[in-house]
Structures are given as C-alpha cells and as structure tokens.
C-alpha cells in the first residue's frame, strides 16, 4: 500500500516535470528560433568562401572553387595590411585604453570630495552615450583641413597646417585617441570600483607606518587593480581579431587614401559587400571568425586558470 502511494506520487511529479519542461521550452522557444535563423542559418552561407559567387547561381548554385578565394586573398597585399591593422589596433587600444582608465581611476580615487568625484565621472562618461557618427562630427571639428581647431592652433603658432585626411601616418594616433576618449569614462569606473573595494585599514596601517599618499598608491592601490587588469586584458585578447567597425569607418570617413592605416577586416568586409564581392568578403569573414574563435578559446582557458569566476564558459 505504502509503495503504491509512493509510486503515484512519483508518477505525479514525473507528470509535473514533463509539463514543466514543455512549458519552459515554450518560454525559451522565441529566442531559440531567433538564434537558429539569424545565427545558425548564416553559418551555412559560409560555403560561399569556397565558391565563385554569381548572382544567378546564388549561395548554393554557384561553382565550387576550393581554397582559391583564400589563396587569392593571402597572396595579395590586402591580407597583411588587414591583419596588421586589425590586430595592431586591438593591442594598442588594449594597452593605451587600460593605461588611461587606471590613471583616471587612481586620480579620482584620491579625490576626497564626493561631489567632485561624481562630476568627473559624469563628464568622462558622456562620450559613451554618443554614436560613432556624432564622434565623427566632433573629430571633424578638430581635423578639418581649413576650419579645424588643430590647424587653427598650428596656424596661430606659425606652423604649417596639416592635411589630416590625406596623410595615413597620423591615423594610428588619431584612432587610438578617439577610442580611448569614448571608452575611458566607463572603463575607469570599473577600476574605481575595484579601488573602492580595498579594505581602508590597509591605508590606515600604511599611514601609521609612515607611507605618504604616493607610496600608498604604489604599494596598495596599483597592486590591487592588477588582477582586474590581467583579466580584462585577457578578455580583450579574445577579441583581437574583431575590430571596431564604427570607429574605423566613421572617423576616417571611408577615405581611400587612408586605407593603409585605417582599413581593418570589418571595414574591408563591408566594402566587399557594397561592391558585390560576396565570395572574397565571406572568405575574409570566415578567416576572422575562425581566428576569433581560437583567440577566445585561448583567452578563456587562461582566464579560467587564473580566476574561474571570470571565465565566460
């Protein structure tokens, strides 16, 4: 008798479970469908990388040409330039961006007035709310060859004005500047939070031992953000092959003369799409996806060794 009751109870929970499972699956379904259609179906389109795309043939009817798109790509000057620029900018942004974010966080952390702290953080975060298009307008105010602020200053100093938009040499600095400008506010807040988490007794003890503010920064503040810095750098490393299309497209205004310094994989793929070079563009995109996947797996592996809490998966 007792066992029979037990079984019906079990049966009932089992029924419940099945009903629950179906209900939960229904809730998850819209998202599953979305990811299937807009993330998994395009993966099938990657076959284009191995085809000679023709409009009449489409994705599946065009002829297979093996790796010829890739051999064409890697034997051209483009490949070297694209990889160098994409990876180079990622690394530059990672180093310069984190450096300034930490410097700003340390400076604001030293400020004793709460109101001042709030003002600085609010002002520094403002560019984060602007689109790259608007940042493009702002950059033009400074870089415009005839009316730009930089050239006004140069002329005022008696120097020759510079044609910024005709000279690729300046662009690594310009792009790094604007990337840092847009992101430093929010990133510094992350480091600021890490500094706020430090036990104040540490500073007290250091002060009693006779350490001045500078020594406290050097021996307490900086070491305590190092672990966050390591993690963030590693996560950035996973994105080395993913460029910022908005930055590299809007600030140099898609000017061909500047491509040697500003063209990254993402802008190249977009131009290919515009010009109808679907197969080559897909090949470049596939290369980017595969290289990106490898980098993410490497970075995630290292992160999970150092701090499993921070690992993505």
């Amino acid at each position: 008798m007792a066992t029979a009751v037990h079984t019906t109870k079990q049966l009932r929970t089992l029924n419940y479970r099945r009903k629950d499972n179906i209900a939960l699956l229904v809730l998850a379904l819209p998202c599953i469908i979305y990811f299937f259609v807009w993330h998994y179906l395009p993966m099938a389109g990657l076959v284009l990388a191995f085809k000679n795309y023709t409009y009449t043939g489409g994705v599946f009817g065009s002829d297979w040409i093996g790796f010829r798109n890739f051999t064409f790509l890697f034997s051209s000057q483009d490949a070297v330039r694209l990889i160098r620029n994409t990876v180079g900018y990622s690394i530059a942004f990672m180093i310069v961006g984190n450096f300034f974010a930490i410097a700003v966080a340390l400076a604001i952390f030293e400020i004793q007035s709460r109101t001042q702290t709030k003002i600085y953080q609010t002002v520094l975060i403002l560019p984060r709310f602007l689109s790259w298009v608007v940042v493009g307008y702002i950059s033009y105010i400074f870089l415009s060859p005839t009316q730009g602020v930089f050239n006004l200053i140069l002329r005022w100093l008696g120097a020759e004005p510079v044609s910024w938009y005709q000279n690729p040499g300046y662009w690594p600095f310009i792009l790094t500047f604007f990337n840092t400008w847009k992101n430093v506010g929010l990133n510094s807040i992350m480091y600021y939070a890490a500094l706020m988490a430090i036990d104040t007794q540490l500073f007290e003890a250091a002060r009693i031992d006779g350490a001045n503010r500078w020594q406290q920064i050097l021996h307490i503040s900086i070491p305590s953000v190092i672990s966050l810095l390591t993690i963030l750098m590693l996560l950035d490393l996973g994105r080395t092959f993913r460029g910022d299309f908005g930055l590299n497209f809007q600030i140099p205004r898609d000017i061909g003369l500047l491509y040697p310094a500003t063209d990254i994989i993402d802008t190249y793929v977009y131009r290919g799409l515009r010009e109808g070079a679907f197969a080559i563009s897909t090949a470049v995109g596939l290369f980017q996806s595969v290289a990106g996947l490898i980098m993410i797996l490497i970075s995630n592996r290292i992160v999970s060794r150092i701090n499993p809490e921070r690992a993505l998966f």
């Binding site: 990811f35 259609v37 807009w38 993330h39 998994y40 179906l41 395009p42 993966m43 099938a44 389109g45 990657l46 284009l48 994705v59 993402d266 793929v269 977009y270 290919g272 799409l273 679907f278 563009s281 897909t282 995109g285 596939l286 980017q288 996806s289 595969v290 990106g292 996947l293 993410i296 797996l297 993505l312």
Partner: peptide, 15 residues
C-alpha cells in the same frame, strides 16, 4: 556557441 562563432556579415546580408 553563437557568441564564439558566426556566419559574418555577408551570409547574414544574403539571408
């Protein structure tokens, strides 16, 4: 998995 790998711009555009 979609966070790690994707079809990219051109296949998405064609779709």
């Amino acid at each position: 998995f979609t966070f790690l790998f994707g079809g990219g711009l051109v296949p998405t555009y064609i779709l």
